[in-house]
Design a protein around this nucleic acid. Structure first.
Lengths: 246, 246
DNA sequence: CTAATAGTGTCTATTAGACACTATGTA
DNA sequence: TACATAGTGTCTAATAGACACTATTAG
């Protein structure tokens, strides 16, 4: 196959973001209101074009910062505000009615933010419960997300749900310092199940390198003061945290 | 951000394939010899441009068929020859010196093929042991793969290694009918470890839906005749097959 | 016979899951 | 006081890993 720049079709390449957080015991995704056709007025995932001299990860980090103010690990060596990873790429020829667009979706996990959104290029932005966005396949069509974003969101949610099983990624949903109970509520919100607090406590505190005690305590959840921890260096969780209802 | 087709940069989009198989107790990848600059004469992963009206998965299946003759599940309802899934997307601005190319890499797992390659658009094609292609970081530079293909291959190998832990994907490396011992040798080759044949047998035959006895036996591995199985419908492997040396 | 692989059984240390109980804060 | 959450201990059923033993072929 000859390699002539004029012989292959030109594509637009975008990054779309599945930004997840846990708010009031519910897994939520960041959505933006579309200001233009097509799908004007509908909710969509945040995203935008990759620039001419920009890496895919950089483009995703830039969009994340524009929409939320969150800093992914990229910039310098300070601890990141959010976890960011590539999710999958969507390139159905008919996914955008205007032109051929290939979207490299990324998954971002962030702690609950005080301000729901910051300035971006989108009109309105909101955290919406994932159950609302994806619940009932038919509901997806009436109030659904634009383009193939429901599919992308579903893939991102499934990635998050499975990845917290065998990694310490759930701590990305927590602030820098958190309690065992708060971490447990993250698992419960993401999986939509109830976990035994005592077994959970034994499991996470017994896994070396997962949690590092930071010294203080807090009563922000009520009840007896709970120890504060920060995420340890361990990224793999072995043996994994098992999702119930197998 | 205005959505004007003339305002965004144009990208070329390709699919690259990490095609893995197990040959003579070694995990091997399909490589093709480059006939043109850049990297002329070096080995590379098979791949090619996505066509104007082609889905990404279709492009990957087409390239796989062109290079190996293998049929992924796409075409019709017959059982597929090979497993094919999207791996990740690589879009560093400098990954191709000629132009901006975004490559959507795919991972294919195939049984050992009698003919190493079939007709394709590449000059020579070979199965090369993964350990040769990736062993010793410095060795990668002298006899290494073109572009960022060493990185792509490493990601694909890691995906395969982790995915056979918790799925029945290892059967994609086996012919339609296989023995427990042959399946065990797949795990041993992919992970590069030795597994206890007795515990392995108990594990796989005790997981419902993983293996379905097909009735016959074979002595193609020598020794006592072994039952033949085919892959069952179960795709998830729960509890997972544990990789030793944790 | 030996050598090879297939397949079953048994023992033990570990652990997930269930749950009783105590500790320490707020209303 | 009642009530919330935090944290520890104990019991049991399941299982991964180690390994003894038998079965059935080829040479």
């Amino acid at each position: 196959m000859p390699y002539d720049p004029s012989e292959f079709p030109a594509f637009a390449v975008t990054v779309d973001l599945v930004v997840l957080t846990v708010r009031r015991h519910a897994l939520c995704a960041l959505t933006v209101r579309r200001g233009e056709e097509p799908f004007r007025g509908q909710w969509a995932l945040p995203g935008g074009f990759v620039r001419a001299e920009e890496d895919l990860a950089s483009a995703a980090a830039r969009e994340l910062a524009e929409e939320t103010g969150l800093r992914a690990q990229d910039s310098d060596s300070r601890p990141a505000d959010a976890h960011l990873e590539q999710l999958a790429t969507y390139g159905d020829p008919s996914r955008d009615p205007r032109m051929r667009v290939v979207s490299v979706a990324h998954l971002a996990l962030a702690p609950d933010l005080p301000a729901p959104t910051a300035g971006g290029d989108a009109g309105g932005a909101r955290w919406m419960p994932v159950s609302k966005l994806l619940g009932g396949q038919d509901q997806a069509s009436e109030e659904g997300l634009a383009f193939d974003h429901a599919r992308i969101l579903a893939d991102g949610v499934e990635r998050a749900r499975s990845k917290i099983e065998y990694s310490s990624l759930a701590t990305a949903f927590c602030p820098a310092e958190f309690t065992v109970g708060e971490l447990r509520r993250v698992y419960e919100a993401v999986w939509g199940v109830a976990l035994d607090p005592r077994n959970f406590h034994r499991k996470v505190t017994g896994t070396p390198g997962f949690l590092v005690p930071v010294g203080g305590t807090t009563t922000r959840q009520g009840g007896r003061p709970a120890q504060l921890f920060r995420a340890g260096g361990a990224t793999e969780l072995n043996p994994p945290m098992l999702r119930p209802e197998v």
